[in-house]
């Protein structure tokens, strides 16, 4: 979590966090919803999931409170489940929302970095996660989402 200095700057930071933290909490939802939207509306992007059948579970809270969402890919479509779908092919658990945001901002490429920091734990088939990471990065590359993330970081 962010460290707050004392005094006026600290208060300003607290105020800013009060606005930003809920968005950070919803980073996962935003990412998956936008990915689904892109698949539904952009034929070129949809080609990336052609033939991709699999369930990717992303959740936060390795030790404590958890939020989870599942990206379910089937027959060139994607649907989002706000719970942990089972059985999954790969399950990624981030230590907290900020680790998740770091992942979302990088578009999936930094999950190994997070694993090095023990901020993320990947279970299951890594190849599904690499593919999901590719989809997320492409999403950022083709959209203004990365600018959005940078605004809330």
């Amino acid at each position: 979590m962010k460290k707050h200095d004392g005094g006026i700057p600290g208060l300003i930071q607290k105020a800013a966090d009060a606005v930003v933290d809920p968005i950070v909490d919803q980073a996962l939802e935003i990412l998956l919803a936008y990915m689904k939207h892109k698949i539904d509306t952009d034929k070129e992007y949809a080609k990336l999931v052609a033939g991709f059948n699999g369930v990717v579970v992303v959740r936060t809270g390795i030790k404590g409170e958890r939020i989870a969402a599942s990206a379910i890919f089937a027959d060139g479509k994607m649907c989002v489940d706000k719970e942990e779908a089972k059985p999954w092919d790969v399950r990624v658990t981030f230590a907290d929302h900020h680790a998740l945001l770091k992942f979302a901002k990088s578009g999936g490429g930094d999950v190994l970095d997070l694993a090095l920091e023990n901020s993320a734990q990947v279970q299951g088939n890594y190849n599904y996660f690499y593919r999901f990471g590719f989809l997320a990065r492409e999403l950022l590359r083709q959209s203004a989402l990365s600018q959005f993330w940078s605004l809330i970081s």
């Binding site: 578009g107 490429g109 690499y130 990065r137």
Partner: peptide, 10 residues
């Protein structure tokens, strides 16, 4: 090799 999948465009 699939470890570079997320990086194909970067």
């Amino acid at each position: 090799a699939s470890t570079i999948w997320p990086e194909l465009y970067s």
